[in-house]
């Protein structure tokens, strides 16, 4: 299948301004990240808080300017588009935000919240409202809610509004940035199911960002694991979940609480230590300060992207030594 969206070596660091606007240092939020999203597939991005997942989403959406790299939508780099061309691409890629209490405007009615993006794109107000109503219906909100204000809606209902707003421009790609993290477990399940239904119904390609491994497993075809702004492992979801290679991915999976009765809730080897400061990331492999399998080599060069099996790569020196594995970079 064709790649509908590709990220090539995306990097972004934020300057830290000190007194009188002097730059004291930089926070490397996303560093040299590449990804690809196949048409009508779902790419899951996992990682702990602060690993750059949301920054990556905002870079793709062009909410933040990228330092380096390219984002190709159907082969065209969208990072240097301007004017009406940018407007066209914006309609194709939409985003669902994390916090449903902050992502819809409390002073606009539900229907206007959804219709706003349409009338901003030149659709007459009445027509925009009609279309908004159609999408509110599609995400399972009763028609009687259309004129209500967000304050009378629950978190799950608000998130449905946010999804309707993302869909109303008829995008091809939807980026869900922690879209279910703020919801109760039972509501999460409903919203996840809704995502899958809508994906089929409107032929969407999804980028699903979450720190919840189970959610990502349920949603994704491909998974990308990030740590401190870098991709440590990526590949088909089935392979990564059944056979994680990178020590960070392994540690992450080991920290999923066990559901078995009688067993200790945490299996073994939880990740030790704190996330290092992104202002001053460790040299070489960024995970080496917490890695249980750390070697002397890790502090040196950047870890290579080793292809474990077709489409499945892990950025770790451990696999470089394995004889016939092909070293990618």
């Amino acid at each position: 299948m064709e790649n509908i969206l590709e990220g090539v070596n995306i990097s972004k660091s934020f300057p830290i301004k000190g007194f009188l606007g002097k730059t004291k240092g930089t926070v490397s939020a996303v560093h040299d990240v590449s990804f690809s999203l196949k048409e009508q597939a779902t790419l899951g991005i996992v990682g702990e808080s602060g690993c750059g997942k949301s920054t990556l989403a905002r870079l793709i959406m062009r909410l933040i300017q990228t330092d380096e790299g390219k984002v190709n939508y159907r082969g065209e780099n969208i990072l240097n588009l301007t004017g009406s061309k940018l407007q066209d691409v914006r309609k194709k890629i939409q985003m669902v935000f994390q916090n449903p209490y902050s992502s819809i405007n409390p002073k606009l009615s539900i229907i206007d919240n959804v219709a706003f993006s349409l009338w901003e794109n030149g659709v007459p107000k009445e027509e925009a409202r009609k279309k908004a109503l159609y999408y509110l219906d599609a995400v399972g909100l009763p028609k009687s809610y259309a004129l209500r204000f967000p304050s009378s809606l629950s978190g799950g209902q608000r998130q449905r509004v946010a999804i309707a707003r993302a869909l109303v421009l008829e995008p091809e790609i939807v980026i869900a940035d922690e879209a279910v993290s703020a919801l109760d477990k039972s509501v999460q399940a409903q919203v996840l199911k809704l995502f899958q239904e809508l994906k089929k119904e409107f032929s969407l390609s999804l980028i699903f960002i979450s720190h919840d491994l189970n959610v990502v497993e349920y949603m994704s075809d491909e998974v990308m694991v990030m740590y401190l702004g870098k991709v440590v492992e990526k590949g088909p979801a089935v392979q990564i979940y059944s056979n994680p290679h990178h020590p960070y991915t392994q540690a992450l999976f080991n920290s999923i609480p066990s559901m078995e009765v009688g067993e200790s809730t945490l299996n073994n080897s939880p990740i030790n230590g704190e996330l290092p400061s992104p202002m001053n990331p460790p040299s070489g492999c960024r995970f080496r300060t917490r890695c249980p399998l750390v070697t002397e080599k890790c502090a040196g060069d950047l870890p290579p992207n080793v292809e474990i099996s077709p489409g499945h790569t892990a950025a770790c020196v451990l696999y470089e030594r394995v004889g016939n594995e092909k070293v990618l970079s």
Binding site: K91, Q94, M95, F97, Q98, S102, E120, A162
Partner: peptide, 14 residues
């Protein structure tokens, strides 16, 4: 700082 402002910007609103 609210997310709905970001959301509006992603739709290309002026």
């Amino acid at each position: 700082e609210e997310e709905f402002i970001e959301a509006a910007r992603t739709t290309g609103a002026k």
